[in-house]
Structure formats: structure tokens, C-alpha cells
Amino acid sequence: MVTDRTAPVETAALAAEVEGLLEPAEADGVFRDTRECGGALLLAALLLISPPTPRPKTDVR
């Protein structure tokens, strides 16, 4: 089925959609890490002995 492709409202909207798909803004990063090492909220430095000690979760990051 043929549409009237020159309808101004459709064309403008479509053109905007096209531009948006050509250059979408960067999505937020999804950062995942292994849950190994005690499932600590803070898996961190093996500075001397081990990572910064896991603390009881008081809040979720």
C-alpha cells in the first residue's frame, strides 16, 4: 500500500526519528562484576592481605 510520503508532519517526525537513530546518545553503562570474594558490597584492594574488608550492607549502591 502506498502512502503519501510527502505529508509534511509525517516527514518531519520521521526525519527526526532518523536523526535520532543515526546518532543516539550514549546509554548509561551497565557495569557487572563477579560476585566472588564474599559477595561484598565493596570488592576491593588486595593491598596487603585482602580486599578492603566487606562491611555489612547498610545501603545498596
Binding site: 557487572r32 562484576d33 563477579t34 566472588e36 570474594c37 570488592l43 576491593a44 584492594a45 588486595l46 593491598l47 580486599p51
Partner: peptide
């Protein structure tokens, strides 16, 4: 490198 591996490299 995930977080754990990154800490491994630094150490």
C-alpha cells in the same frame, strides 16, 4: 577485566 581482575593487576 572486571573489578576483581583490575585489583589483581594493580597488586
Amino acid at each position: 577485566l572486571d573489578r576483581k581482575a583490575a585489583y589483581g593487576v594493580t597488586h
